[in-house]
């Protein structure tokens, strides 16, 4: 009996230790360097740190080469486009905004985001009238979608900077969507393609696994 209890207690202690060790090995970043450069306050508002995020992507951090990178705008548009990293950050006006990301896991971070508006990028491609859904694709295969009105009617940023530093690879370099008023799983990182579609029933990675398609913060993230 005592032996069984000992085994059970040992198991309970060992599992967190082993998983914690695996996690720290997998997600350690060069935090000291980032912390010395990022800002911690903006217009009187305290900001979280870049290192306050938990790494919970589907395939771990992605390391994208800036030289090879292209952002494609495809689907139901007049002019399908492909932009380089420099074109996206150089040819479009950038906006700054402090927005809080709320993760379904229970943690949140308040960050100063900076980047162009998604609707400005789409304007040049010319969405067709039949397009009602915008599907974002990421380098790691992750996808998520939004009604086109959400992107067009709100100032939705595609951030390349957070807290005044360039997005680190672990945080989504080159671009992360700042999907304000949505749960964190809608804040897609490592964006490579924006596809306009007429498939309103499209479900992204987590949405096809039972998460809410709208991802609205004021509702449960379960369908």
């Amino acid at each position: 009996m005592r032996k069984k209890v000992f085994v059970a207690v040992a198991f309970l202690v060992a599992v967190p230790v082993v998983l914690g060790a695996i996690d720290s090995c997998a997600t350690d970043t060069d935090g000291n360097e980032l912390e010395s450069r990022e800002i911690s306050e903006y217009q009187g508002e305290d900001l979280s740190s870049v290192n306050d995020f938990r790494e919970n992507s589907i395939n771990g951090p992605q390391y994208i080469d800036e030289e090879d990178y292209q952002l494609e705008i495809t689907g139901l548009v007049d002019n399908p486009r492909a932009y380089t990293y420099d074109e996206v950050i150089g040819d479009y006006q950038s906006y700054k905004k402090v927005v809080t990301l709320n993760c379904v896991e229970g943690w949140d971070v308040t960050i100063l985001w900076e980047g162009p508006l998604v609707r400005d990028l789409l304007a040049e491609a010319g969405p067709l009238a039949s397009a009602n859904t915008i599907i974002f694709h990421a380098y790691d295969g992750y996808t998520t979608s939004f009604p086109i009105d959400y992107i067009m009617d709100n100032d939705i940023i595609m951030a390349y900077k957070m807290n005044d530093i360039t997005l680190p690879p672990e945080r989504g370099f080159p671009f992360q969507l700042v999907a304000e008023s949505k749960w964190g799983y809608k804040w897609i990182k490592w964006i490579t393609e924006i596809e306009l579609s007429d498939d309103e029933s499209y479900e992204g990675y987590w949405e096809s696994r039972g998460y809410s398609d709208s991802g609205n913060l004021d509702a449960s993230f379960f369908d």
Partner: peptide, 20 residues
């Protein structure tokens, strides 16, 4: 004991989902 173990494992199933 079963409930505690399940609590811990499912907790890690959320935060360390790839490993679990």
């Amino acid at each position: 004991l079963v409930a505690v173990i399940l609590y811990v494992i499912t907790g890690f199933g959320i935060t360390e989902f790839r490993t679990v």
